[in-house]
């Protein structure tokens, strides 16, 4: 394997990892604080992408579209909290799973009715659509760098929010002791709504960043959500740090595994055997990693201290 390919694939892995973090952070936030399992998080990812696509055409500018789409997605998240999640807090996780499963069907059909069955490609402005030459042999699309930059910025912003603001303090307190936050006279319903909206905006952002590459389509979130589950299981459910580290880990392992596993296998088996087994193994790689992590640490790498 040559070096520039390795660099490109590493950047791809980083990009996937950061996108996964955006989705997983919302999931882990909502679970950590509200103890609520939200499968429909996948739909927020999709809805973010579709709204962004529509706005890109309406406003003629992708960046502007993202900025407008974010609060809209957050508002949808807030509405879901208010009307579906809230009546279910007192129920068990099974009910959460079933109700949000129903919600996925509803939201996907609504998307189908509004945007039609076809996917929508999202055009990028010319200055984002170019390529950057990192060296003579190393050329990567500039939008990938934008995704990595935006992902890192969002992660940084989230860390700042959680660790250095009053809202973050309440979120952290709420994650470890709900009753206490309530006792402090904080409007816990308001806090929950905000957390849900924040998670929705993060998932939506991930969808918006992906849309120019893959296009916005129905069901686009359904595979991402499972990988995001793997991320938060490996990282430890409720842990932001765990989600970040696990997301990068999973993103890199998945991407590099798909790219290089056959080369690796060829070192110790026939190339025919390597070419048949490598795709299957690389497809299962992140799940094998997850199983290994759980076999050693059933609560993930960074289990939250109080639960």
């Amino acid at each position: 394997m040559d070096l520039s390919l390795l660099v490109i694939q590493t950047l791809n892995g980083l990009q996937l990892g950061l996108l996964l973090f955006l989705v997983a952070s919302g999931l882990t936030l909502v679970f950590g604080i509200l103890d609520f399992v939200n499968l429909a998080h996948a739909s927020l990812y999709m809805v973010g992408a579709f709204i962004c696509a529509t706005l890109t055409f309406a406003l003629g500018n992708f960046l502007l579209a993202v900025l407008v789409a974010l609060p809209i997605t957050a508002a949808i998240g807030w509405a879901i909290e208010r009307f579906v999640a809230r009546p279910l807090y007192a129920r068990d996780h099974l009910d959460h799973v079933l109700a949000t499963f129903g919600l996925i069907l509803v939201m996907e059909t609504l998307a189908h009715m509004i945007w039609g069955p076809q996917g929508i490609a999202v055009p990028l402005p010319a200055w984002l659509n170019g390529q950057v030459a990192l060296s003579e042999t190393l050329v990567i699309p500039s939008f990938r760098l934008v995704i990595i930059g935006a992902g890192l910025a969002a992660a940084g912003g989230l860390f700042w929010l959680v660790n250095y603001t009053r809202l973050g303090m309440l979120i952290r307190a709420g994650a470890s002791n709900r009753v206490m936050v309530g006792a402090l006279g904080i409007n816990i319903e308001m806090l929950f709504g905000l957390v849900f909206a924040l998670g929705a905006a993060l998932a939506g952002l991930a969808g918006m960043l992906v849309a120019p590459i893959t296009e916005a389509s129905i069901g686009m979130g359904n595979n991402v959500i499972i990988t995001a589950f793997v991320v938060i299981i490996v990282g430890g459910i409720g842990s932001m740090k765990g989600a970040f580290i696990a997301a990068l880990l999973i993103g890199l392992i998945d991407t590099l595994g798909r790219a290089f596993l056959d080369d690796l296998f060829k070192l110790f088996m026939s190339s025919a055997a390597a070419e048949t087994s490598a795709p299957a193994i690389s497809a299962m790689l992140i799940y094998i990693i997850m199983a290994l992590v759980l076999a050693i640490r059933p609560q993930g790498l960074f289990p939250p201290k109080v639960r």
Binding site: I226, I232, I233, I237, M284, Y287, L294, P298, Q299
Partner: peptide, 22 residues
């Protein structure tokens, strides 16, 4: 079965998805 609660839900889902991708 070494895990509990929501971990169990998610990990059973993930293993099924593993077969899917395989």
């Amino acid at each position: 079965l070494r895990t509990k609660g929501v971990y169990f839900i998610m990990i059973t889902m993930a293993f099924a998805q593993m077969v899917y991708y395989a």
